[in-house]
């Protein structure tokens, strides 16, 4: 089980951030997340695997500047 924005989601061993987001709605603006406190950006979503019991926060649009 992992937590995404404080909601429980079932975990699978081959789960990446990209596959997680594919099963979620309203995430088209998500280009950065925090995985267990560390920032991960969209170019790495396909390669970063999610460990079981992870805590994930989806960050809003990056405003910058």
């Amino acid at each position: 089980m992992i937590k995404v924005d404080e909601k429980n989601i079932a975990w699978s061993s081959d789960m990446t951030i990209a596959t997680l987001l594919e099963q979620m709605e309203d995430v088209e603006f998500c280009s950065v997340i925090r995985l267990n406190g560390k920032l991960v950006s969209s170019p790495k979503f396909k390669e970063v695997k999610i460990p079981d019991n992870s805590n994930i926060q989806l960050l809003p649009l990056v405003a910058g500047g």
Partner: peptide, 22 residues
């Protein structure tokens, strides 16, 4: 605290984000 944590890190959160996006 759930988003950019600016009260903790200021704008330094942008460094890894910009780096990852080239």
């Amino acid at each position: 605290p759930k988003q950019n944590r600016m009260a903790l890190v200021g704008t330094t959160h942008l460094v890894p984000i910009m780096n990852d996006h080239d």
